[in-house]
Design a protein around this nucleic acid. Structure first.
Lengths: 237, 237
DNA sequence: GGGCGAGTTGCTGTCCGACAACCTGACCGG
DNA sequence: CCGGTCAGGTTGTCGGACAGCAACTCGCCC
């Protein structure tokens, strides 16, 4: 299931793609030191110059960080699109999220395999059973990403996860509102049921309703907005 | 053009930053050829290696494109997400494109202003009137992006334009098939009519049909069945 | 005179060797 | 035991070299 790249004419591009792949697939873990440029050059059978150009690109993307005299270290395990989407406003991000997740749910319902269902079922149960707010948010994210993965299209989980990250970073306190928990759990269950039944239309409707409800609860009433803006400023770290 | 020597920590980073700045600020315009690596190295007072590493990063970001024997050309005046989405397969990209453009059309119908309509109408007319294939592809792209802009959500045009770029780069010769032109023009007209009428549902349906037709003409016959299953439905509301 | 093909030039892609700056760990002398 | 020194490894930068590609020039041949 390796996404085998589009024919690479230039060696530097090929090396860059392979290194990114290795890092994203977890072959090199976070904060781990990569082999030296000389070793990489040797194992890729190219010169050190080519490796350097590739590493330079990774540094530019924030995937790695190089220190003279020490080596090159993994700074992030995934290319994030934060540079790309990080400057947009939460309402815009949420809208795009909805545009992506509704078809994602539909496709997931049509294509999911058995192991997708097993994972989703477990996440639904975990979400309903988890008390602690932070963990529940994480499980919620995993649930939406698992749906996207069930589409078989790797671009869906990638974009949805990134949007989610940025939204969360911008301090939308999701799912912390009183009484919303039980409701969200029911909505998750409905989405899962539709996907399990293979009913794309129903899955799309359920997901849309879910995101609609989320939007309603995060859209800020006038007096709440000041509080949220304040919270947003404090979560700078 | 006063490019004075740099006094920073890493020369390659400084050169990269300056080149990005020059391109984003319009000092080098779209499709313009940059000075050769040797000239840049000279004017920045660094070696060609450093310039090469910087240019390599720009290529990775999609800002420039280098051709052996010709030179390096400005490919985009702003950072895009090529790195993010450039490694996915065309079918996956197309699927996400559809997921985004259908809601984009719906929102555009609901929110478009008068000047949005004027621009769209002009693009529809231009598309129908243009004979030359290359120009028509460009106008087609502009039409889809203009719709996305009419949503008022800047993230839509951004993502849709990037998806489009990557798809085109991966050598899908869109809209070059005989007889497809007139059909595409009619589909564009239908989308425009729905948007002009402010009918979100109709706009979504028209866009979905349009992308369906495009997919049929560009994709392998293998997944026809999946597409037929998808044809009956409509993106949920 | 006109067309055509062989040089010529300029550019990027790749490789090599070298050296400086820097960090780490081991060794050594006190 | 402690502290300083040194050697080795690593990145950062440099300069040079050559192959391959693309575009242009110019002289040769018809």
């Amino acid at each position: 299931m390796s996404i085998h790249p589009i024919e690479q004419r230039r060696a530097s591009e090929a090396v860059r793609a392979q290194l990114i792949d290795l890092i994203e697939k977890g072959h090199y873990k976070l904060n781990e030191r990569l082999p030296s440029e000389a070793e990489l050059a040797n194992s890729f059978s190219v010169s050190r110059s080519v490796v350097r150009e590739a590493l330079n690109s990774l540094n530019a993307f924030g995937l790695t960080k190089s220190y003279a005299g020490k080596g090159t270290f993994v700074a992030s395990t995934k290319l994030n699109s934060r540079m790309l989407i990080g400057r947009f406003l939460p309402p815009h991000l949420g809208e795009v999220r909805r545009a992506l997740e509704v078809p994602s749910a539909r496709l997931a319902a049509e294509r999911r395999g058995e192991e997708d269902l097993a994972r989703l079922e477990e996440l639904v149960a975990q979400f309903a059973a988890t008390e602690e707010s932070g963990r529940r948010v994480k499980i919620d994210a995993d649930f939406h990403i698992a749906i996207a993965e069930a589409t078989g299209n790797p671009l869906f989980p990638r974009l949805i996860a990134d949007l989610r990250d940025v939204l969360q970073e911008q301090a939308l306190e999701l799912a912390t509102i009183e009484g919303r928990t039980a409701q969200a759990a029911r909505e998750h269950q409905a989405i899962f049921d539709a996907i399990a039944a293979g009913d794309g239309e129903a899955a799309a409707r359920a997901m849309d309703a879910h995101l609609e409800a989320v939007a309603e609860h995060t859209a800020t009433p006038a007096d709440e907005s000041a509080k949220q803006a304040k919270a947003r400023r404090q979560t700078g770290s």
